[in-house]
Design a binder for these strands. Structure first.
Lengths: 226, 226, 226, 226
DNA sequence: GATGAATGAGCTTTCATTCAT
DNA sequence: GATGAATGAAAGCTCATTCAT
C-alpha cells in the first residue's frame, strides 16, 4: 500500500528488516501498555501483513528481535568502553546503564515482556538461540569486567553482569514507571504509597552500587584505584 | 464437584473465596507454563464459571490474589522472625527466601506473570491497591530489618528488601528454570550455554549476599556480630 | 444477536444442535460451490460464532455431522423397508436412492466434500468415529439385503451396498451436476460433450442395475421372482 | 536448482512444462495427505514461483494437468490393447487398471482431489476443457470396448467405462487407504471396523467384475468366448 | 523470459465476561 | 446466590497470485 521499492539486494533486505523492527519499536514505545498486532506493525512500516512474515518467522520472534537489538546496543557500548578505557569504574557502568537501558522508553517495558514471553509463547528454539547469542556477549563483557575490577575470579564478571541485569529488570517491574498510566496521571489516588513509589533511576543506582560493592569491594576494595 | 451449595454466612463466603484461590493455585503449580482459564479454575474448585465472578471482579484480580497470598506468607514469616529472634542474620533471610519463595513451585512463575500483567492487563486500581497493601507489609519488615542490621538509615531496610525482591524475580526470569521445558529436556542442544545456564538457588544466594553485603557491610560491618 | 432463549434443558440443546445443522445444511444447499465459514453458519442460525463451538468441536466435525444426518436418513429408510416388506427388489432400492440421495440437493455435494476432507482436514478420530457408526448401519442393512436377495454369501450384502455407494458418489462427481454453475448455465459452451454430459439419475440407475445384476443375478437369478 | 535458463524454443518450453508437472507429481506422490503449495512445486522443479505461472494459468490447472497426464497414460494403454489384441477380456481390463491406476501411488489421491476441486476451485472453463479432452479419449476407448464385448449398443461402451471409473474412484475414497495415516497405524483402535476396513484392490476387482458382468454378461454372455 | 518480493483476503478458534434462568 | 449458555472481539498465519526488476 505504501512501500516504494522492492528489496532485491541483500542490503535492501536488511534495510527493510530494520524498517520493520523500527516500526515495531515505535509502536511499542508509543503505547507500552499494549502489544501491537502484526497488522499494526505492518501498517506502521507501510507494508502488508504478509510481508512481515517474509522477514520474521512469527510475531514473538519479531518482538525478541527488537529486544535483542536494544540489548546489543548496551553490550556493544559496554564492551567498547571496557576495551577502550584504562580504568572503568562503577560510575561508568551506571552511566552506560542510564543511557542505554533506563532512558530509552522502549528498553525496559519490552525486556519485561520478553522475559514474560519466554515462559509461555516463544518457540523454545528461538528462546535458546537468543540466549545463546546473549550469552556470548555477556561472556565477553564479563571477561572485560574481570580485567578492570580486581579480585574477581573467573566467571565472577559474568555473574555480576547477570545479577545487575536481573536487578535492573526486577526493580523496573516493581516500579511505578512500569504501571500503565492512569488517565489522571500516575500520582492520582488517595494517599502516598511510599514503599513502592520511588524514583527508578535513583533507586537502581543505589541498588547497583550496593551489589557491585558487595561483589567487588568486599573482596578487594580495589575497584577505585590500582 | 465439591461444594455446590449456597454460601450465605460470611464465613462460608470466605471459605469459598479461599477454595477458588486454592483451585487456581493448584492449577498454576501443576502446569506453570500455561495460565489456566477461568473455566478450568471454576471446574477445579467444583463451581460454575459465573460463581468465580461473584468472588473476584475478574481473572487478573484472581491471579493477583493468589500471588498476594504467597507474598503474605513470606512477609508474615519474615516479620515473625524479626520480632521473635534477638539476632537475625543474612543466613536467616536466605533460609526464609528459600522456604517461602524459591521452593514452592508456584511463587516465582506467578510473580513473574503478575509483574508482566501489571504492565498490561490489570486494572490500574487493582494494581495500586495491591501495591498499597504490599507497601505496608514491606514497611513493617523493612523497619524490622533496620533494627537488626545496624548502620542502616531510615528507609534503607525497605529499600534493601525491595532490591532483594527485584533480584529474586529478575534472576528467576533469566534462569533456565523459567523456560518452558524442551521435550528433550532443558539441557538438550549442541553446546554449553554457560552464561545463562546456572543453578537458580545457588546464584540467588550469591547475589543476595553480595547485595546485602554491599548495603550493610560496606557501611557498618556490623551485621555479623554485635 | 437474534436467539430467543437459552437452551437449558437437554432437549433445548438438541434443538439448538439441530438448528445449527440446519443452518449449515441450508447454506451448503444454497451454494454448493463454496463452503460456508463458521461465521456464516452461526449467522444463518441466528447465533454467535462462539456458540457454534459449544455444540461442535470444530468446523469439520460440523460438516461431517450434517453429512451423517443425511446418510442416516437413507439408511434408516433402507433398513425400515428391508424389515417391513416381504419382497424388496432393486427397484425399491433405486427408489430409495433417488428419494434420499439424488433428489435432495445437499446430499451429493456434501458427500463428495466429506470424502475429500477425510484425506486432509478431518481429525483422524472424528473420521474413524464416523466410519464406525456408518459401518454399523451398513452392517445391518447389508444383512437385510442378504435376506432378500438370495445367493449372497455372508458379507456380500455389505459389499454390494459399499459398491453401490461408491458408484453413486463417483458417478456424481464426474457428472455435470457436480459442476459449479456457469453464469450462462451448465450447457453453455461450444459443442456437445457427449461422453460426460449425461443425466445423472438415468445413468446411475443403469449402473446400479448392472452392478446388482452382476452381483446377484449372475449367481441366483432369483431376485426377480419369488 | 536444476534449470534456471531461458526456454526460448518451443521444445524447451515443453520440457519445462513437463518438468513442472514432474515436480508436482513427485511432491504429490511423496506426501499424498497434503497438497503442495505452488512455492514447493516451483522449488522442486528448480524454478521460481512466478515461472510456474508462465506455464500454467493457476494452481488448480496445474493439478488437473498432472491428473490428466495420469489418465492419459491409462487410456493410451487401454486403447492400444483394444486395437492390438484380437480378444480383450475383463481380466485384461483389470490388469490395466491395476497397473495404471491402483498401483501408482499418485493416481487415486489426485483423482479424488481433482473431483473435489471440480466442485469448488477450478475455473469452469478449465474443468470443461478437461472433460472435453477426456471425453474424446473415453469415446474412442468406449467404441473399442463395444467391438470386443458383443451385445453392447452404441454408447454402452462409454457408459461402462464411465461407470467403472466412478466405481474406482468412489471405492477408493471410502477405503482406509484414502485415510491420512494415524500415528499408531491405520489399524489402531479398539475394535474391528469390518464394514469399511477392506483391501482396496481385492474389493475393486470384485466390484468391477460384477459391474461388467451385469452390463455385458446379462445381455449376451458372450464376452468370454465368441 | 525469469524471478521472487510483496500483497492481503480469508478463516478458525479461544476465552473473559455477562446475564437470563 | 449459583449456574452455564451465549457472546463476539481479537489475532496470527497461509498462500495463490501479481508485477517491478
Amino acid at each position: 500500500m505504501a512501500i516504494r521499492q522492492r528489496a532485491m539486494q541483500a542490503q535492501d533486505k536488511q534495510q527493510r528488516h530494520d524498517a520493520i523492527l523500527d516500526a515495531a519499536a515505535r509502536l511499542l514505545a508509543d503505547s507500552p501498555e499494549r502489544i501491537a498486532s502484526v497488522a499494526e506493525v505492518a501498517d506502521e512500516a507501510g507494508l502488508a501483513k504478509g510481508t512481515v512474515y517474509l522477514y520474521f518467522p512469527g510475531k514473538e520472534e519479531l518482538l525478541l528481535a527488537v529486544h535483542e537489538r536494544n540489548v546489543d546496543g548496551f553490550f556493544d557500548a559496554l564492551i567498547e568502553v571496557l576495551e577502550r578505557k584504562d580504568q572503568v569504574t562503577i560510575a561508568d557502568v551506571l552511566a552506560l546503564t542510564g543511557r542505554h537501558i533506563v532512558e530509552p522508553p522502549l528498553f525496559l517495558p519490552l525486556a519485561a515482556r520478553c522475559f514474560g514471553m519466554m515462559g509461555q509463547g516463544v518457540p523454545v528454539e528461538a528462546a535458546l538461540a537468543f540466549k545463546q547469542r546473549m550469552g556470548e556477549r555477556l561472556q565477553k563483557a564479563g571477561t572485560g569486567i574481570e580485567r578492570h575490577f580486581h579480585g574477581l575470579n573467573a566467571g565472577d564478571g559474568v555473574a555480576l553482569l547477570r545479577h545487575s541485569y536481573a536487578l535492573i529488570i526486577g526493580l523496573w517491574q516493581m516500579s511505578p514507571a512500569a504501571q500503565a498510566q492512569h488517565p489522571a496521571g500516575p500520582m492520582a489516588g488517595p494517599g502516598p504509597r511510599p514503599a513502592f513509589d520511588y524514583d527508578y533511576q535513583v533507586e537502581l543506582d543505589r541498588a547497583l552500587v550496593a551489589l557491585w560493592d558487595g561483589t567487588i569491594g568486599g573482596r578487594s576494595r580495589s575497584y577505585a584505584a590500582p
